[in-house]
Design a protein around this nucleic acid. Structure first.
Length: 594
RNA sequence: GGGCCCGUGGCCAAGUUGGAUAUGGCGUCGGCCUUCUAAGCCGAAAAUCCCGGGUUCGAAUCCCGGCGGGUCCGCCA
């Protein structure tokens, strides 16, 4: 907000629209800075140092109230802002908006975020958890950034991977003696251990059969998928992750959404029915024009036997998300907070999005590109532009990848990591806070475990591969969830001890105070960028910076025993609010003590 | 063959709409609990920002060419 003010101010002085306001490397050099003098000097063939001096001289003719001093340092222009006015405006805004501080004004746009969408045949491992955590965080960020957000989980109940495990159920029976998704995951490994061409053929037949909802196995299959999904949602719910709606692949197909999409696709001139050649009888999307160097530029949408490919179904799903189809899904309640698509349900206002974000691994960027492109080929330019693939890299083991078939996920499921996290957190509490009641230890330990798992995933940029290591995944020191929580708990602890009404003067002289205020003022800017770039790690970064600024302040300056108790308490309270708001954006429960 | 992503102190990362002395964490070394929570704070050592060219007053950041790692390019799912 100060940056924008300074930008407008410099625009008035220089007449330029492209001014970037930075921060100087050292706070002694000023609060904000600009390097415009370089640009102007270049255009005029002048010396940037003189240009900067000229601008500052112009500014100094009539300095606005909010700016104390403007100086040059070589060609750089540095601003020293009026701390009293600045502190007052920042802190008052924080207190006034409280939990809404950082929230941006409504964009009047609906965003669908699809995330998780894991095959219902095994438990979630940490790679899948990265998807859900990133998706949940970006959904939280977008809500605060002023979007109406609808969170969707796509259930691939017609995929071959499910058919494989279902074949195992038919053969071995449905006798789960542990959490259902874990049971299925291990069964899936056993199926692959005995896999041969004959079994493969059986499974294909079974898969085909399951597409018909009236077939003899369809009912059992549906209940198996539902139990697996319920198992997944139980783990995810523990991580504070929820959904507005579950969309079933079978729903998309049986409600006729796919057929409608198929009819539309046939009308596009870039999508043709091959009359001869190796793809005879297939409906093919011609991509050679856009991807000229592709080994195989023809993307099959409908196979010669009339069945749709994955990509074709994804196009139908994307069309539904944007509300481009005449037909619609029906829904019923899944649980307290979540609806599910259902053939015998009722109409509901899901879909019809302005923007669609699909959180899917980066290995799928080509099919996602095809989906985006297909909307363009169908004439939906705006929807194509508003289709975003939020890509992220794998989580791997130090020497292996997570594989469902080979079962390398065993020992590294989300449930395993949550349990280990709780155990570790409670051990720490036993050591550090022996006087706490067991109930409090459970509560705090759980929040720290969940928070740490989430924090240690989101803090990496999505395009970075993560190697899973226990000491990183459950790191409690340094740049970590407990570090943020700790700063927050310290704020709460001080505030609990403070008595009486506060009447701050907003006079802050100390460098640590000024730094902290400056940091606190930046939340909404960070939210804006995180939403724009779809990069939730900006939030963890900022939360960490805020906690650093606070801890540094805390260690150097007394609050309750200071002459300026009221001013310092105001800072502590404002920090508490900002940290809590950051934690909510990351999906971490703010703790008042730990 | 081509597309996309990654390469930053011993390790892990941030920074990539060009801007001042490259920022954190882990680890190492040295300090700080008789004052608001030491899961903390202060300080030190530690970097050819993968390599080579180019553009620019200025490059970790942009362009070209390499190298190394990952991934994708099936009528699979």
């Amino acid at each position: 907000m100060m940056k924008k003010y300074l930008k407008d101010y410099l625009k008035k002085i220089t007449g330029r629209d492209d001014i970037i306001i930075d921060m100087p490397p050292n706070p002694n050099m000023g609060d904000y800075s600009s390097a415009v003098a370089f640009q102007i000097a270049k255009e005029r063939g002048d010396n940037p140092v003189n240009v900067a001096k000229g601008i500052v001289a112009e500014c100094n003719k009539c300095l606005p109230e909010r700016i104390d001093k403007i100086t040059t340092m070589g060609p750089y222009i540095n601003f020293f802002i009026n701390t009293e006015l600045y502190a007052k405006s920042v802190l008052q805004m924080i207190f006034e908006q409280d939990e809404s501080y950082g929230m941006l004004e409504s964009k009047n746009q609906r965003v669908i975020v699809e995330h998780t969408s894991v095959n219902p045949n095994k438990p979630l491992h940490m790679g899948a958890a990265r998807n859900s955590i990133l998706g949940d965080c970006i959904a939280r960020v977008l809500r605060v950034a002023g979007y109406e957000v609808e969170v969707e989980n796509y259930i691939d109940d017609l995929g071959i991977q499910f058919a494989e495990v279902f074949w195992g159920i038919i053969k071995e029976g449905d006798n789960a003696d542990e959490k259902y998704d874990h049971f299925l995951g291990k069964l899936y490994i056993r199926v692959h251990e005995q896999m041969n061409p004959e079994i493969e053929e059986d499974i294909k037949k079974l898969n085909k059969e399951l597409e018909d909802p009236s077939s003899k196995n369809a009912k059992l299959a549906r209940s198996v998928v539902e139990r697996c999904v319920a198992s997944h949602l139980e783990s995810l719910n523990a991580l504070n992750i929820g959904y507005d709606v579950l969309v079933w692949e079978s729903g998309i197909v049986h409600a006729g959404l796919f057929d409608e999409t198929f009819r539309r696709l046939r009308k596009s001139k870039d999508i043709v029915l091959e009359k001869d050649g190796p793809l005879e009888g297939c409906l093919v999307m011609k991509l050679g024009r856009i991807f000229p160097n592709m080994k195989n530029p023809d993307k099959v949408l409908i196979r010669s036997d009339g069945t749709p490919t994955y990509t074709a179904k994804d196009i139908a799903l994307q069309m539904w998300k944007f509300g481009l189809l005449d037909k619609d899904l029906k829904y019923r309640k899944w649980d307290e907070n979540t609806m599910t698509s259902s053939l015998d349900g009722e109409a509901f206002d899901f879909g019809n999005a302005d923007i669609v974000i699909n959180v899917i691994g980066s290995e799928q960027s080509y099919p996602q590109e095809v989906v985006k492109l297909s909307l363009k080929l169908l004439g939906y330019d705006k929807q194509s532009e508003n289709s975003f693939h939020m890509a992220y890299e794998f989580v791997t083991l130090p020497n292996d990848s997570f594989s469902g078939r080979r079962g390398t996920w065993i020992g590294y499921t989300l449930d395993d990591v949550i349990n280990a996290g709780r155990e570790k957190a409670i051990d720490e509490l036993d050591r550090r806070r022996p006087e706490l009641s067991d109930i409090m230890k459970q509560k705090i330990g759980n929040a720290l475990a969940i928070g740490s798992i989430r924090y240690n995933i989101v803090r990496y940029a999505p395009e970075k591969k993560i190697v899973f290591r226990w000491e990183d995944a459950l790191n409690f020191e340094g740049d970590s969830c407990p570090y943020i929580e700790y700063a927050h708990a310290r704020c709460c602890s001080i505030l609990k001890r403070a008595k009486g009404k506060r009447t701050p003067s907003y006079r802050y002289e100390h460098q640590k105070e000024r730094e902290l205020i400056k940091t606190l003022s930046q939340l909404s800017g960070v939210v804006e960028l995180a939403a724009r770039d779809k990069r939730p790690h900006y939030i963890t970064k900022y939360a960490n910076e805020t906690a650093i600024a606070f801890n540094s302040f805390y260690n150097e300056l007394p609050v309750l025993k200071s002459e300026q108790v009221d001013d310092r308490l105001a800072l502590v309270d404002a920090t508490r609010i900002v940290l809590a708001n950051c934690m909510r954006l990351i999906g971490i429960e703010p703790l008042e003590e730990m």
